[in-house]
Nucleic acid binder design. Structure first.
Length: 500
RNA sequence: CGGGGAGUGGCGCAGCCCGGUAGCGCAUUCGCUUUGGGAGCGAAGGGUCGCAGGUUCAAAUCCUGUCUCCCCGACCA
């Protein structure tokens, strides 16, 4: 776990900064700033994603999108605005989102004394809601797309922005506007829809663990944590370095709720008119927050090789123009070799920064591997290779560097996952009594497995008394027992944690 | 939305208590010297002190309102 004190302090600046006490949030914000991922926008609770952050997101998008396509999905795009009446068609759905909607009421402005005001004459007949999620507008559309069982399944995904008027925001983890992907599928049978829900949960698990190197627990949400309008919400839960849990992705089995609300029926093989079964699933830019809080250290961000916009940076070291020329030529040849192997590499030939500065900067931005080359290396046919995750350095032969880098990138990917998993294991406890639960939560935090009687009352009680919530009922079945609070029977232990 | 803290050149801050017209470090630009872990010296540019009112001869400083950010609660991907 990072010391939470400071990252990236130029010695010359230290005296100015060290005065400031830093907590985990501040550390988190510092990583974002030093890695140049994002910043606050002039609008409350929103953020500007900088190119560095965007290319990271694009890599995540690309990997996810491929996994969606591989499982038979297609991309589509639905409108940003949802007529107010649509939202009220599914009772639970409105209830869940009503409190956090941005509402468009007018369509024009007018000049008044050099300023502008809303033109009262432009009031809309029906207000438009800026989508907090797209189930309603999509199911309204699906009604027209679906008549026969031959029209099913519909397997659609949308990459979009959504707006939720949050009371309290946090860069990446909870912004008012965020980028995400939302899959919306329609099926002829319940079994097929349930299978789809579980399949997408597995896609998310795979992405989190194999690409983000972020271990997750898969499970089902309790009724109180369920998505508004869903029959069942599945999720992946990750553990951050400060011991708090992060819901990293959700996959919902929506039953026939939206089909009923939007009157989406199909004629089946047997000639009968039936309601369509639905799923929806999504992950958002919150994943970037999860990535930061899983891997970063006091030197800054650490990006797993598979997602890193730049996987290897080559830093040339030289004194004279003559040396510069030889070293850059040497660096270029390495760059060409790496690129030829499909490695995302860059040569940092900026002339206005010294090598030490570049080392620190690339570390802050989380580039997995660094190759430093100077006159001595050229002479010996060497390179200096430095790993971001372990901060270790070694000298390697120039020959075969491409393959070595490829291997090392894979190693780093695996090591990051293993390190995160080790951390999670250490931060995971299993308790039998409520006393033990409270003590562990206070002293150690992290994930706690405990028996629960399955009632919302007990869940609520634990939440009120300890702030810990049931993150999920793990899919991996455990043994039966008795509830730590009430002593009533429990089918299996559930996962508790304090969450973001 | 309730409680606490904060908004001053691009970034990080001091100045505010006790009003007198803005300063430091970093960054930027130019020059010379430097370059294997965040370079040195010299010179230069850049701020109507979050915004709006008020008090005053005079406001970054005092008063009121408002917006935004951070932390703690309630809400949530």
């Amino acid at each position: 776990m990072p010391s939470q004190k400071l990252i990236y302090i130029p010695i010359s600046m230290a005296q100015n900064i060290t005065k400031r006490e830093k907590d985990y949030s501040q550390w988190y914000l510092d990583v974002i700033r030093e890695a140049q991922l994002a910043e606050h926008s002039p609008v409350r609770g929103c953020m500007v994603i900088r190119p560095t952050g965007m290319s990271l997101w694009e890599n995540m998008q690309q990997a996810l999108d491929k996994m969606f396509k591989d499982t038979g999905h297609e991309n589509a795009y639905f409108p940003l605005f949802i007529p107010k009446s649509f939202l009220s068609k599914e009772a639970q759905h409105v209830e869940g989102f009503a409190k956090e909607c941005a509402v468009v009421t007018h369509s024009r402005l007018m000049s008044v004394d050099g300023g502008v005001e809303v033109d009262p004459d432009s009031k809309l007949d029906e207000e438009l809601i800026v989508r907090p999620t797209s189930e309603t507008i999509i199911w309204d559309t699906y009604r027209n797309w679906i008549q026969s069982y031959r029209d099913l399944p519909i397997l659609v995904n949308q990459w979009a922005n959504v707006v939720r008027w949050e009371m309290r925001t946090r860069l990446f983890l909870r912004t008012m506007e965020f980028l995400w992907q939302e899959g919306h599928t329609a099926h002829a049978t319940k079994e097929e829809a349930v299978d789809e829900t579980l399949q997408m949960l597995e896609v998310y698990r795979t992405f989190a663990e194999e690409f983000m190197a972020m271990p997750v627990i898969t499970g089902v949400k309790t009724e109180s944590e369920r998505f508004a309008g869903a029959e069942e919400t599945y999720c992946i839960e990750a553990l951050m370095q400060d011991g708090k849990a992060l819901q990293a992705g959700t996959s919902h089995f929506l039953g026939q709720n939206f089909a009923k609300a939007f009157d989406v029926k199909f004629q089946d093989k047997d000639g009968e008119l039936k309601l369509v079964w639905a799923t929806s699933w999504g992950v958002s830019t919150r994943l970037i927050g999860g990535l930061i809080m899983t891997h970063s250290d006091d030197q800054g961000l650490i990006i797993p090789p598979k997602l890193a916009p730049t996987q290897v940076v080559i830093v040339p070291i030289y004194r004279s123009d003559e040396e510069r020329e030889t070293v850059l030529e040497y660096g270029d040849s390495i760059l060409a070799e790496l690129k030829g192997l499909g490695v995302r590499a860059k040569l940092d030939n900026r002339d206005n920064y010294k090598p030490g500065f570049k080392f620190a900067e690339h570390e802050a931005r989380g580039i997995p591997l660094r190759i430093a080359v100077g006159p001595r290396d050229v002479q010996k046919n060497n390179v200096e290779l430095a790993r971001r995750d372990t901060l270790s350095k070694s000298f390697e032969s120039r020959d075969g560097i491409g393959n070595l880098v490829q291997d090392l990138l894979e190693t780093i990917q695996v090591d990051l996952f293993e390190a995160a998993k080790k951390f999670r294991t250490e931060k995971t406890s299993e308790v039998e009594t409520y006393e033990e639960f409270k003590q562990v939560l206070k002293e150690k935090g992290g994930f706690i497995y405990a028996h629960w009687d399955g009632t919302a009352e007990t869940e609520e009680l634990v939440k009120n008394e300890t702030k810990a919530t049931i993150r999920c009922i793990p899919l991996e079945k455990g043994e039966e027992g008795v509830c730590m609070v009430t002593g009533k029977p429990s089918k299996q232990k559930v996962l508790f944690a304090i969450s973001y």
